[in-house]
Design a protein around this nucleic acid. Sequence first.
DNA 1: CGCTAATTCGAACGTTCGTTCGAATCTAGT
DNA 2: ACTAGATTCGAACGAACGTTCGAATTAGCG
Lengths: 217, 217
Amino acid sequence: MASPSTAVRVSPRRHRAAPVPATRFDKRLAEILTHATEVFCKKGYEGASMRDLSRASGMSLAGLYYYFESKERLLFLIQKHTFTTIVQRLKARLEGVNDPEQQIRIFILNHLEYFLANQSAMKVLSHEAEALKDDFASEVAAIKREYYRICVSLLDELKSNRGLQFSTRIAVLSLFGMMNWIYTWHNSRVDADAGQLAREMSDIFLCGVRMGGKGRR
Amino acid sequence: MASPSTAVRVSPRRHRAAPVPATRFDKRLAEILTHATEVFCKKGYEGASMRDLSRASGMSLAGLYYYFESKERLLFLIQKHTFTTIVQRLKARLEGVNDPEQQIRIFILNHLEYFLANQSAMKVLSHEAEALKDDFASEVAAIKREYYRICVSLLDELKSNRGLQFSTRIAVLSLFGMMNWIYTWHNSRVDADAGQLAREMSDIFLCGVRMGGKGRR
DNA sequence: CGCTAATTCGAACGTTCGTTCGAATCTAGT
DNA sequence: ACTAGATTCGAACGAACGTTCGAATTAGCG
């Protein structure tokens, strides 16, 4: 009977890059995810109740459980989709670019553009990074590690290309800090757009690592 | 009858920089705050229950309410004490230093030293910034604004002293991002100490803003 | 239409939440 | 030792939590 209550429910396998494979189920689930993202963003994962999600998505409390088996899996779906998308876009943008500095600028631009275009989802990704447990946690951690590694390899390349000296780990994590902290302060009525922000952050970061402490006073 | 159940209970006014004004009440409260900080750090403010706090501090659930009137006020006390202390230490350290660049290096060092020496408290301060409401929220926000303004004025001074051009707001917030993000990655068994981290972050940041986008490719 | 499967819902489950209250215990000054 | 105030506690409160279940409703197809 393909009981959906087990919630292993998965949309019919899509052959290749499906043009119109979005089933009714998938579309409704996507709507719920969108509404849930806003609620998690505003109240936090722990602070948001299933009744809040029910209200936001206009579906009954019990009805939600037809689409996912637990609140935790809902957060997982949001985080996985968001992270997967940003990595995928990055890879597409990096293709054909060979200069390490240009690659890093693209990395920063891609991150900030996606961040500002999907502020709620990215805040949920950044701020609720410790909320998932066990298998959910490790699956998201794997994507995060891949994303981190890409940035490390770009910076390592820059380092050897120009004979620079700095700690890649600290540089990468400082860069992520600069970028991810945005969710705590960005105000679209005051602050510049992603392109401008990416340029300013890239300038600070790249000039910083290029000098690598030379010219200290 | 000075009913303590109203929890407006405040330690006897201390004249000047009190040497031994710490009453029994104050000491016990401080212990509870320390334990609560660890619990909030590990499980998050919403995720931590009063029963968790009771277990961690070795005091009964009801007994806790003799020391503070609500869970929210407990978080407030932690945040206010932590923030007040870091601002106070900064002011002391900045005294007598006039060179803007040196001042910024001190700002960064002070922040990171305190951050690593009080990781749990600083994580609770950074990560639960939106958890408080109304008066609690605005009182902490006032301290945060003061801290932010100090950093802005240091950077503005550097800018005019050296005729630089960059957005102070973005520079300051990028710097806070670099520094505060630490709570998501710092591992004391792997990473350098505060002095070394402060040097590396200062180098990246200061060289970055000194160039101000000049030397872009 | 009539039938089946997909979707939605009201109502309730047992648990845990933050908080309260009155009684019990402890501490310090006499 | 006595007492008054400070401190602690067991037990309970109503509310809200995540989740379940069987019945009701809807959609798609012959």
